[in-house]
């Protein structure tokens, strides 16, 4: 299974980026082999709809779950429509997050964790 994790860096030891739509990196990780595809997020500076675009991106890469800090309403709607499981409230390193998912410690969120525009600075 492939999952998408929002990250501040390009490898497993980087910290989780608490923003989803405007995360610095999206790591597409194979949870069995720990193979990582690091994507610099092209939507950091999107005027609006960053969460929607980032959702589209991780869906297209075949992720079945998302691990992040927070997820707004539009991203939540898009990811849920595509059938992805969304885990919010994560912090620490990407590796720790993946391990806690694998050990069954995490429960998917049932709704957006923050209101819209949470991760935009303006």
């Amino acid at each position: 299974m492939k999952i998408a994790v929002t990250s501040t860096g390009s490898d497993l030891d980087a910290q989780i980026d608490p923003r989803f739509g405007r995360a610095q990196y999206l790591l597409i990780i194979d949870v069995e082999s720990y193979e990582v595809e690091a994507i610099e997020n092209p939507n950091i500076a999107a005027g609006g709809g960053a969460g929607i675009q980032t959702s589209q991106l991780v869906v297209d890469r075949g992720a079945e779950a998302v691990l992040t800090g927070n997820c707004g309403p539009n991203a939540f709607r898009t990811l849920a429509a595509a059938g992805l499981k969304i885990y919010t409230g994560l912090n620490g390193s990407v590796r720790e997050a993946v391990e806690s998912l694998k050990s069954g410690e995490l429960t998917p969120t049932e709704g957006p964790s923050v209101p819209g525009h949470f991760g935009s600075s303006g």
Partner: peptide, 15 residues
């Protein structure tokens, strides 16, 4: 240009 539409897995979402 405003990301008001998304297409995911045979669904079109309108915002």
């Amino acid at each position: 240009a405003f990301n008001a539409l998304a297409v995911v897995k045979e669904q079109v979402l309108v915002f």
